[in-house]
Computed example of a mutant assay.
Amino acid sequence: MTKKRYQGETNDKERSMHRLLEAVGCVIKEKGYAGLGPTNIAKAAGLNKRLIYFYFGSVDNLIEKYVRSKDYFAGASNGADQLLEQNNGSGTCKLLESILVSQLEHFYNNEEMQKIILWQISERSQIMFEVAETREQVGSQFFELADKELNQEKADLRAVAGLLVGGIYYMVLHAKSNDSLFCEIDINTEAGFDRIKNAIGNILSDTYRRAKLQEN
């Protein structure tokens, strides 16, 4: 006979916290970041807004927890140390390609994340600043490894990565907002999407190749 799981205070808390976190995403999709007030969040969750403060301390803490759970680089930071340590400063080209392609796929398929990035570039926010700082910490770990492999004065991998990340954000937001071509590429099609993924790999391969040729 299967035992029933105890549905007590702890489970109620977990369910309520989960509903509040998911409600943040619903509000972002329906009303944008401007609608992220306690009343809207509590209504979307079907809970009393006092639970926001009881479980999270503040609306900002709730929103930050949600944003971090949806942000690729912030989420990746938990396992980044081990991944980068295993790499040990060799083969960082393929590692960076994997990170950026994963970011492209995650961003394209996540409507809330698209709204969050629009929020980040639209106005100053302590929440967005802290999330961006987490991204920078993950990036710093990677670049520290890449510095062992390449002469950064010749490669300037930081500038290349910055342009690639910015391009990923813009192309996805453009395609999702306007459903139109960009540089005659439609990334809403499988063929167009694959072209961008291939371009990421080609740009990084060329950057590493040229840097290593200049060292010889």
Results as ranks from 00 to 15, higher is better:
residue 50 R to V: 10
residue 9 E to K: 13
residue 117 I to T: 10
residue 195 R to G: 06
residue 117 I to H: 12
residue 213 L to R: 11
residue 73 F to T: 05
residue 140 S to Y: 13
residue 56 F to A: 07
residue 125 S to E: 15
residue 41 I to D: 04
residue 50 R to F: 08
residue 178 N to F: 03
residue 100 L to C: 05
residue 80 A to K: 01
residue 133 E to I: 02
residue 126 Q to A: 13
residue 105 E to F: 14
residue 212 K to V: 07
residue 50 R to I: 02
residue 97 E to R: 13
residue 198 N to L: 11
residue 48 N to C: 03
residue 52 I to P: 02
residue 192 G to Q: 08
residue 188 N to C: 07
residue 134 T to G: 12
residue 127 I to W: 01
residue 81 D to P: 13
residue 59 V to I: 12
residue 189 T to E: 11
residue 174 H to M: 03
residue 131 V to H: 11
residue 212 K to M: 04
residue 171 M to E: 10
residue 65 K to P: 00
residue 165 V to Y: 12
residue 208 Y to R: 09
residue 168 I to N: 08
residue 152 Q to G: 13
residue 159 A to F: 14
residue 53 Y to I: 05
residue 200 I to G: 10
residue 19 R to A: 15
residue 114 Q to E: 09
residue 98 S to M: 07
residue 147 D to Q: 06
residue 96 L to Q: 02
residue 28 I to K: 14
residue 94 K to Q: 12
residue 173 L to V: 03
residue 136 E to R: 13
residue 167 G to R: 00
residue 22 E to L: 10
residue 119 W to R: 15
residue 14 E to T: 10
residue 212 K to F: 15
residue 67 V to R: 00
residue 211 A to I: 06
residue 66 Y to T: 13
residue 200 I to D: 09
residue 136 E to G: 09
residue 141 Q to I: 11
residue 191 A to L: 14
residue 21 L to D: 03
residue 107 F to S: 06
residue 72 Y to E: 08
residue 215 E to N: 07
residue 30 E to R: 06
residue 138 V to E: 09
residue 56 F to L: 03
residue 179 D to V: 15
residue 147 D to K: 07
residue 132 A to R: 03
residue 95 L to W: 00
residue 25 G to I: 03
residue 181 L to C: 07
residue 100 L to W: 06
residue 124 R to I: 07
residue 122 S to N: 07
residue 161 A to T: 11
residue 66 Y to F: 02
residue 36 L to A: 00
residue 74 A to Q: 02
residue 13 K to G: 08
residue 136 E to C: 14
residue 136 E to V: 12
residue 22 E to C: 09
residue 169 Y to A: 01
residue 208 Y to K: 10
residue 99 I to Q: 05
residue 92 T to W: 01
residue 189 T to S: 11
residue 39 T to I: 09
residue 68 R to H: 11
residue 138 V to M: 10
residue 187 I to P: 12
residue 105 E to I: 09
residue 9 E to P: 15
residue 144 E to D: 15
residue 165 V to K: 04
residue 46 G to S: 01
residue 37 G to N: 10
residue 45 A to C: 07
residue 204 L to T: 12
residue 169 Y to R: 04
residue 60 D to M: 04
residue 120 Q to I: 09
residue 48 N to G: 05
residue 183 C to A: 15
residue 49 K to G: 01
residue 155 A to D: 05
residue 208 Y to T: 14
residue 115 K to A: 12
residue 65 K to V: 01
residue 81 D to F: 04
residue 48 N to E: 01
residue 81 D to C: 11
residue 207 T to S: 04
residue 45 A to G: 12
